[in-house]
């Protein structure tokens, strides 16, 4: 499963929202509230083995499926050189 699909599966299973587009804003569509956003952050950290800084918890990184997937990809690439 791709990063995007894994995140989508988590959102659908957890928040019971099925019909939403990849670029829909979680906030403006009312898909995820603040507690839910914290759960999403915890899922992303645990499932992809990355650590999000508090200053990275902003709409530019997390407010749509596309943004979250792109952000996770960026974080994983940052991590790889250090690991290898």
């Amino acid at each position: 499963m791709s990063i995007r699909e894994r995140i989508r599966t988590f959102i659908v299973d957890t928040f019971f929202v099925d019909e939403f587009g990849d670029d829909d804003s979680f906030l403006r569509k009312g898909l995820i509230d603040s507690t839910g956003m914290m759960e999403l952050v915890a899922f992303v950290e645990q499932d992809f083995g990355i650590k999000l800084e508090d200053k990275e918890l902003v709409p530019e990184n997390l407010d749509s499926l596309t943004r979250v997937a792109a952000f996770v990809e960026r974080k994983q690439q940052q991590r790889l050189p250090q690991a290898g």
Binding site: F15, F16, D33, S34, T35, G36, M38, E39, A42
Partner: peptide
Amino acid sequence: TVISRKIPAGVTVGGAPAR
């Protein structure tokens, strides 16, 4: 635990953030 969403039948949730 702090909850603000639907929890399906028979599920146990806990932790902060909840899982």
